[in-house]
Amino acid sequence: MIQDIMTVAETAKLIEAGNVLLLAGDEAVLRQLPKGNWIGGTIPYFISHAEGGLATRDRIFVTDVTGVAQSVEIVERDANGLAKVYAEGPQEGFSVVIIPALSKAHLSFALNAPNYKDFGVRPLIGWISGVHLDDLGKVTPKVFNGVTGNALEEGAVVLQATLKPGKVAEVGIVNLFEQGGGDILTFPADGFSAKEVLVNGEKRNFAAYIVKNKLDTRLPLVADYYGALVNISFQGIDEVEGEVKFYAPVFTGIRYKHAKPVADYGEAFKACLENKCQLSEDRVVFSCNCILNYLYSGLEGKKTDPFVGPITFGEIAYQLLNQTLVYLEVHDV
């Protein structure tokens, strides 16, 4: 199974051969591709086996799932239609969703996915498409439906893959962040921003709390979902308005803590794989990692084997995550 950086011509050859592809690249290169069994999202940052982390507008990250997929269907969904994303997933397979950053679909999925009908009944993995950081505010992130050639800046594309017989898909995450030993933070409302926070049950202004306690906002808030650690990354603090903005929503009733620092992402990553994850490289068919890990941990030129793939503006493992590597494994059973 291919998971590699390719030229437009190399990618086009695979599409023309009928392969089923998950693609990531700059808008200009994705627009040059022929129609076929592929979905794509815009982003020019990747991790590859050969080069490690890199930014390129000229090449495409290709994940070829032809070897595991018996059949695929590619659909477009608007913000409301995404509510069916679990229920309509193939019975013996998996779905991959790509959503443009800052679209209505992105905001809706982030807030509502945990309450969609049949949450978690089918494996769902995916990512939030983005842009080169130099283009922030100038160019909109897009997703591509390879079957129709449509490029969308609103809505989502979903590839629903039925696996070949005897195979089963599992979604996993690698999150190097753990809850620190500080205060327990809860929020009075769901949302991508918060003015108020309950600090160990006491109401405070969150922006003032962060400033007073000198919290490093490169480190996320971490929630413990029955042992699965889920991050919420900080987007910014408006001290004048007393408001804190996040890259994923906080939810009421969930107890968050500020993360412990990670000294060296690369070393911590290796240690995590050796100690916690029992992974076989040939079972991992797709993975992606977060742009904030790429930036804050200096992943340019560094490798995170066995994981390669796009660097994204948000990761989806059933629901939206931040500062997390997500991956799809296919087992023979």
Partner: peptide, 23 residues
């Protein structure tokens, strides 16, 4: 009872459900 579970979808779901039942 709290278990060390492996299946990610169930863990994320249980994170919400246990809280819902407490409330």
């Amino acid at each position: 009872k709290t278990y060390q579970l492996k299946f990610l979808a169930a863990k994320i779901l249980l994170g919400r459900l246990v809280h819902s039942v407490k409330e």
